[in-house]
Amino acid sequence: MTELETKIRAEAERLLSEHLVDVVVAFRKEDAPLHPQPAFFTQVDELQDLVYNGLCANNLANYLTRHPQETRIGMVVRGCENRSVNALVVEKQHTRENLVLIGIPCEGILDWRHIVALTGENVLSVEENGESVCVHTRENTFAFSRVELLHPSCQRCLHPNPISADVLLGELKPEGDPELMRLRIEALENLTLEERNAWFRHEAERCIRCYACREACPMCYCTECFVDHTEPRWSESGVTPAGMQAWHIVRAFHQTGRCTSCGACERACPMDIQMTYLTDKLNLDMIDAYQFEVGMDTTTQPPFATLTLDDKNRFITRGK
């Protein structure tokens, strides 16, 4: 057990035993190698299964909307998860008073796909020692530096520290370099229209419409998704280019000013499809046009969710 895990368990134990929360949302040790599971602890004696490591790949804020507002939730949050929670509070999906955020300054999530690509399928365990990572497979042991295994979204992470946690465990990390996200998007924007189109098609055409990207995203909580509507019909149903492209574009657009660039959607995708280039572009637009970054507080509405009658654009028509 790592020192950090001991601290998280102690905090979870305190919250449960003092009846400060009804449930602690964290991770538990994996059944399948490389995949610690999101877990819901209600009893102190279950906490021996609690783990925290670089392979905890899900955005736990995703589970906030599964509980009624009255449920008092303790949740382990990294930088992006804290901001997702804030965004959900802004959208009135939970009451901040009923949340206890156990903040962990984040060292970045290890990309399990990348590990498998480098070491082969039969990974037995992964050992993290600060900046180095050791991967044990059935056949071999491999040593890596942590940075080379980070998920791309984590390499570009701006805010690794939880910004409004109730308890902070671990040392604060330096803020990320905003240029990294911008450089990637600018590189795409500098392509010709045909090249950009080819890039987009190449990613979208492998989609199997499993909607894991949607289900893994804390901000995709609609009880009926546009793709599931039949009347009116917003998108084709099958794995046709039109259907898959509509899915990719509209899903991204529904995230405008709401996505925290956590990358959980990409990590869930079974077909290795890149999709954060769409949401990251929209996030940059939000910064450039409105100086807005999502989840930095629990009150500011995302620009596209605000409505003012003196909006300078003409699509607002006053009743006569």
Binding site: A39, F40, I208, C210, A212, A268, P270
Partner: peptide, 13 residues
């Protein structure tokens, strides 16, 4: 069900 996302991965694959 608590952790399951309800996605199509386990059945489509």
């Amino acid at each position: 069900a608590q952790s399951c996302l309800g996605c199509g991965i386990c059945t489509f694959l």
